[in-house]
């Protein structure tokens, strides 16, 4: 464990009877790092967050958050430096949004005078004095983010945060999260919306049935999966296609008369590009790297769905 790590998990296992919800998870997070936690429902994402929050104790393994055991005596100190947005967050309905936020601010020992401003920042300025009962799911999620950001947490745990959010606020949401990350906070984001997750995380951890099946940045995961790169070449007439196909054994798909798609193993990408650049009549070239969706489905199905 390095000195500046915010979070350190070593061989974390959580079992209920014979069922292992988490099995041997290792993870280290440093300031400013954002981790995407992906996996199917019941893969152990929420359990992992609960363990980090100190709400449940692991069956075995070592956990350190800010150098403490979050479920131990230091729970309060750890909790003050954490922000958490649970999945499908809910609040006492009889309270107004402002009252709810003030309640959480007081629990964290934060000056409540900043609460109206924080509500405005998540677009709830006008709804601050409305009862939470009347809030839509998206509004509750906004309030959830406002409370998670209270006290400038150094570790932010966001469980499926953007479900039910409109695209507009999803952008604001990630802006606020990125802002926190830029000031040195570590972030753990679990999400099903893989495409939107990709630009906001440095690393990914893929959970499957409680096991970590892959961990690393996008480049590492791409390399690990060995998923093909798709290269589309267009221009000229049909002869270009035949010409190119004759030069290589790389599999091709014909899109239309002018365009041909190569499905190319990552290590042969450069070779193909070189070949294409030497071919007469090529007007355009598009390279499509496997995205998170495809990487994820590779792990969850054990195959590439093309």
């Amino acid at each position: 464990m390095t000195d500046d790590s915010i979070l350190n998990l070593r061989g974390i296992t959580k079992a209920y009877g014979d069922v292992q919800t988490l099995a041997g998870i290792d993870l280290e997070l440093r300031p400013g790092e954002a981790l995407g936690l992906i996996g199917h429902n019941g893969a152990g994402k929420t359990t992992m967050m609960k363990i980090i929050l100190g709400l449940i104790r692991p069956s075995s393994g070592q956990i350190n958050v800010f150098g403490h055991n979050p479920a131990g005596r230091a729970h309060g100190d750890v909790a003050r430096r954490l922000g958490f947005l649970p999945e499908a967050v809910n609040f006492p309905g009889a309270m107004t949004g402002l009252e709810v936020l003030k309640f959480y601010a007081r629990l964290k020992g934060i000056d409540v005078s900043q609460c109206p401003g924080r509500l405005a920042a998540v677009g709830l300025g006008d709804a601050a004095r409305k009862r939470v009962k009347a809030y839509s799911k998206g509004m509750r999620q906004r309030l959830g983010l406002a409370q998670a950001l209270l006290g400038e947490p150094e570790l932010l745990l966001l469980d499926e945060p953007t479900t039910g959010l409109d695209p507009d606020f999803t952008r604001t949401f990630y802006d606020l999260v990125d802002e926190r990350r830029a000031t040195g906070a570590a972030i753990i984001l679990s999400s099903h919306a893989l495409a939107e997750l990709e630009p906001h995380v440095d690393r990914l951890l893929v959970l499957q049935n409680g096991r970590c099946v892959a961990e690393g940045d996008m480049a590492a995961l791409r390399a690990q999966t060995g998923l093909p790169v798709r290269i589309r070449v267009s221009g000229g007439d049909g002869s270009m296609r035949e010409e190119l196909a004759a030069l290589t054994d790389i599999q091709t798909n014909r899109i239309n008369g002018r365009t041909v798609e190569f499905i190319c193993a990552p290590e042969r990408k450069m070779e193909l590009i070189e070949l294409v650049s030497r071919t007469q009549g090529v007007e355009d070239l598009q390279i499509e790297l496997p995205n998170l969706d495809r990487i994820y489905s590779h792990y969850s199905n054990g195959e590439d769905r093309t």
Binding site: K50, L55, L82, F84, P86, A88
Partner: peptide, 14 residues
């Protein structure tokens, strides 16, 4: 059941 307990216990509350 309402889902407010999980969040509350993540705060500095014993």
């Amino acid at each position: 059941e309402r889902g407010t307990l999980l969040l509350l216990l993540s705060y500095p509350v014993r």
